[in-house]
Computed example of a mutant assay.
Amino acid sequence: MLTNPRAERVKAVHALGRRSARLRAGRFVAEGPQAVRELLGFRPETVLDVYGDPEGGARHTALIESARTAGIPVHECSPDVLGAMSDTQHPQGILAVCRPVDVPLAAALDGGPGFVVVLTHVRDPGNAGTVIRGADATGARCVVVSDASVDIYNPKVVRSSVGSLWHLPISIGESIETILAVCRDRGLRVLAADGGGTDLLPDVELQTPHAWVMGNEAWGLDPQIRSLCDQVVRVPIYGRAESLNLAMAATCCMYASAGALRT
Rank of each mutant, 00 (worst) to 15 (best):
P5A: 09
A7P: 02
E8A: 13
A12K: 13
H14N: 14
G17D: 12
G17E: 13
G17K: 14
G17P: 06
G17S: 14
R18L: 15
R19N: 10
S20P: 03
R22V: 06
A25L: 10
A25W: 09
F28L: 10
A30G: 11
P33I: 08
Q34E: 15
F42A: 14
F42T: 14
T46W: 08
D49L: 10
Y51N: 07
P54N: 06
P54V: 04
E55N: 12
A58L: 13
R59F: 11
T61W: 08
L63N: 07
S66E: 14
A67V: 02
R68L: 08
V74N: 02
E76L: 14
P79E: 11
P79W: 06
P79G: 11
G83Q: 13
S86W: 03
D87H: 15
T88V: 15
Q89D: 15
Q92N: 11
G93E: 07
L95I: 07
C98M: 10
R99C: 05
D102Y: 06
L105T: 07
G111R: 13
G111W: 03
T120E: 07
T120L: 02
V122H: 02
D124R: 11
P125G: 04
P125E: 04
G126T: 09
G126K: 08
T130C: 00
V131P: 02
I132T: 02
D136N: 13
A140G: 01
R141K: 12
V144A: 05
V150F: 02
V150M: 10
Y153G: 11
Y153A: 10
Y153T: 09
G163F: 04
S164P: 04
H167N: 14
L168C: 04
E174G: 05
E177A: 12
I179F: 00
L180E: 03
C183P: 05
R189K: 11
A192H: 03
D194M: 02
G195Y: 00
G195W: 00
D203C: 04
E205H: 11
T208S: 13
M214A: 11
N216S: 07
L221I: 02
L221D: 02
C229K: 01
V232S: 09
V233M: 05
G239W: 00
G239I: 00
R240M: 09
E242Q: 12
L244P: 02
A247S: 14
A249N: 05
A250L: 01
T251Q: 13
C252F: 13
M254F: 12
L261M: 15
R262E: 12
